[in-house]
Design a protein around this nucleic acid. Structure first.
Length: 344
DNA sequence: TATGTTTCAAATGAATCCACGTCAGCGGGATTA
DNA sequence: ATCCCGCTGACGTGGATTCATTTGAAACATAAA
């Protein structure tokens, strides 16, 4: 490893600190939701808040301290975006025996058995992706399990405050999740966190106070600011100055986007690139038709088969869920109905 | 040597998931009649 | 009322994956000449 950083871990997104600064309220709210008596049914939760507010980390940290007789399954639904894939992940979390059978109902039966004998928490992170791609069958199944008192469904979303708007009534009414909201970090909190982590990670490089202040005032997204700081540290000779931080702002942001898109297909990236390039050509928002043309062009130059516009329409939605683009409906009269897309 | 039996891997079959393309109907303000 | 351009849900298709079954040929065993 030829890493300039002594201990890069604290600057990584998945680093789990001992204590969550500025998330004490949310953490204790989660804990109390589960603090009921032994016999009480497990609650369903819907955790929401903007991207980069520590939802995933806090939830996972709280649930990693569950008593032994409660099992836990964590499913990142941006990656496992169908009922089948998610069920498979849940099964994997319960038992090591390699997935045999390839039948959705088979997996459902297994999970049913598991829930019968053991209290269970299922965490569905980035639930929007699964709902967009495959509907709410999985949620419906989980909410209607025979021993539903024994299972807790925790959905996490960066885009949807209220699950009710995304799922069918019958699902919502049997799920009845309690909502827990995460507020964005304010500048002060973000500054503290970054300073704390930098202290642990950057022993050999000095860090100007103004540099951190600038980052903390430009975004409230912890993930983005960590990437930014990491990028600056990588670039810096000895001192991370405000000037340097400003300089690398754009490229650090691109790096952040790349990380987000890492789990997706190359076509997602090409679509993003198409949006990026077209929006660079003057107007700040572009219609989908133009983006699709640009996308096709990019495909030709990289010798890839272009997907249909139907696909790309969905891909743009996914990029929107990731927060890297924004797309609003636009009724242009004779110019038709489309979406206007711009960079997030 | 001819014939029967066993063994095991490769070929084939069957079931399933799902990414994708195609199709048709829709949306709603601007334009036109 | 018409038009525009793309949105969107439904549906069919083919590739991929996985397990189960069949096939076939080698290896071995036995019996007959």
């Amino acid at each position: 490893m030829t890493n300039v950083l002594e201990d890069p871990a604290p600057l990584q997104l998945n680093y789990v600190p001992d204590e969550f600064q500025g998330r004490e309220n949310e953490a204790s709210e989660l804990k109390t939701a589960f603090a009921g008596s032994e016999e009480a049914p497990l609650p369903n939760l819907h955790v929401h808040g903007p991207r980069g507010t520590g939802k995933t980390q806090v939830v996972n940290s709280v649930f990693s301290n569950l008593p032994k007789r409660v099992s836990k399954a964590y499913v990142p639904c941006d990656k496992y975006d169908t009922q089948y894939k998610a069920l498979k992940q849940i099964c994997k979390a319960f038992s090591q025996d390699v997935d045999d059978g390839h039948h959705t109902s088979e997996l459902q039966r297994k999970i049913g058995e598991q829930v019968e004998v053991m209290k269970t928490v299922v965490i569905l992170d980035e639930i929007d992706f699964l709902l967009l791609n495959d509907g709410d069958d999985l949620l419906y199944f989980l909410s209607r399990l025979e021993n539903s008192d024994n299972i807790s469904v925790v959905t996490i979303s960066s885009n949807t405050k209220n699950l009710e708007s995304l799922i069918e009534e019958r699902t919502y009414s049997s799920l009845q999740p309690r909502r827990i909201g995460f507020e964005p970090y304010n500048g002060e909190e973000l500054y503290q966190i970054l300073a704390e982590r930098a202290k642990k990670a950057l022993a050999s490089k000095s860090l100007q106070r103004e540099a951190l202040t600038y980052i903390a005032s430009s975004t409230s997204n912890l993930g983005r600011s960590l990437t930014w700081l990491r990028y600056a540290a990588k670039t810096a000779e000895t001192t991370i100055t405000e000037e340097l931080v400003r300089e690398v702002e754009a490229s650090a942001y691109q790096e952040y986007v790349n990380q987000l898109l890492d789990d997706f297909t190359e076509h997602h990236y090409l679509v993003y690139e198409a949006v990026y390039e077209t929006s660079g050509e003057g107007e700040d928002s572009v219609r989908t038709g133009k983006i699709y043309e640009k996308y096709q062009e990019l495909c030709r130059s990289t010798e890839k088969e272009a997907l249909s516009d139907r696909r790309i329409s969905d891909y743009i939605k996914q990029l929107e869920l990731l927060g890297v683009v924004q797309a609003d409906y636009y009724y242009g009269g004779k110019k038709g109905k489309t979406r206007e897309v711009n960079l997030g």
